[in-house]
Design a protein around this nucleic acid. Structure first.
Lengths: 248, 248
DNA sequence: CGATTCCTTGAGACAGCTCAATTTCGGTGG
DNA sequence: CCACCGAAATTGAGCTGTCTCAAGGAATCG
């Protein structure tokens, strides 16, 4: 269940869970005030579309709580997720009124929305906003490129391990290497969504999850809770250099 | 063979072939003068590395002539290209001194290099530079995401058709739909590089090229010259919606 | 406790990979 | 101009990882 204060009701920046990581994180209180004048909260239920590809977007937004996906679908129904949007991630792009891709709520999602045109005007005036946004876009570009390697060259087993490692990495603050002991990762995706993300079928995802379990790399506690006894063993299965896996 | 004036010898912006599409395209002559103070040309032979992943980059650059690749390699040698760098494409990122990926010359390449630190200072002062750069980065992000769909969900035949269509699109100015008649596409890549880009083996690339030829979609004139009798038939093989394929 | 949704597992099919020749092409020197 | 060479590309044959199709099991919720 989402944070009550942010379930569609007006929240405030003071208590905002993404205050220090979202697009507004470098803004001072004066700049926040200007942002508040053009902002509103919105909540979407799991499965609901947030934006369709080609839509004219009236707003840009930060994910406050929940998980959304960015995806593209071919005419015959083949679907590829392009990114996972977790709390503090940004939706929309300056200077691009129409979305190129579909955005969908994976779980219940609360967004902190800004009206698009005044937001774009603010970008020009507020360097703290522009520079953070550029930085976030560069991070997205790096993430997309990491994923190209995963989709193009990794085996199904490596793909699953990489996804679990990525979610583990995002779920802890700081260096993943510090978590040498057992840790539990909350898996906010069902098998079908994992498959769409990894370029696999849901059956292959299920089989490889079972295989990792059989090999003692992970333990399943229910379907959406994954216990990782030794994160290093999981990372060893990703196919990445150990360094690349632990840094960032 | 590369443009003589740009084969490592000092060229000028007046005669520069990418004057109107590179990162500097929105700059006025005054701003160009400031750029010229921090710029130098450099040429790399086919196959030479330009930057290694992890390197500290002393410069950022625009590709003037030739083709370079951005790629990532796994410990066991599996390689994935992340992008093709054609004339006017930009190498390096503001605020990121170290490259995340390898950059390699595919053919002979001439770069227009800018010393990194003064260039980053200029970005802050020259909005024409910053806004063009942001726009180019957003284009790169879109391109990377298109490629995610290709790598994750397309068949080998669709991948080949998509690559040929993409190169055709970049080789003409304006809308690809206007070129209803036959056209010849110069393929600057050997099969192995195509394979690295498409997440295939070179044998599969070769087989699918032969299959497209057998089906009359393309004709091979030598190894690096592809004649396309009807670009629409090629686009129909990409798996994309016709609209998505023709617009942009 | 039935219904629904999600997940797992099995068996067979097939696209793309691997390994191994063979052919074509572009260049180079006689 | 031709013969030759090496790099690049093609083609073949068999293999394998992932997909497809299908059945059954577990969790959740009225």
């Amino acid at each position: 269940m989402a944070n009550l204060a942010f379930s569609g009701l007006p929240g405030t920046c003071d208590t905002c869970p993404i205050r220090h990581s979202a697009v507004c994180s470098q803004c001072d209180s004066d700049e926040l005030t200007r942002l508040e004048q053009i902002k509103f909260y919105r909540t979407f239920e799991a499965g609901q579309p947030i934006v369709w590809a080609g839509d004219n977007m009236g707003f840009v937004a930060s994910v406050v709580t929940g998980v959304a996906s960015l995806s593209q679908t071919m005419e015959d129904g083949r679907r590829q997720m392009l990114g996972l949007l977790l709390p503090s991630d940004f939706i929309g792009r300056p200077g691009r009124p129409r979305s190129s891709f579909d955005v969908t709520a994976v779980s219940e999602v609360t967004l902190c929305c800004f009206r698009r045109q005044p937001f774009e005007a603010l970008i020009v005036e507020v360097p703290n906003l522009a520079s953070k946004l550029l930085d976030m876009i560069l991070d997205e570009l790096d993430a997309a490129r990491e994923w190209l390697l995963l989709l193009g060259r990794k085996t199904a087993r490596e793909k699953i391990a990489s996804l679990l490692a990525m979610i583990a990495r995002r779920s802890v603050k700081g260096n993943l290497a510090d978590f040498a002991g057992p840790m539990t990762v909350d898996l906010p995706l069902k098998r079908e969504v994992m498959a769409d993300y990894l370029g696999l079928t849901l059956e292959t995802v299920s089989r490889q999850m079972s295989a990792l379990k059989a090999d003692g790399i992970i333990l399943l506690e229910g379907k959406r809770q994954v216990r990782v006894p030794d994160i290093r063993r999981l990372i060893a299965e990703t196919g990445d250099d150990v360094d690349g896996g632990l840094i960032i």
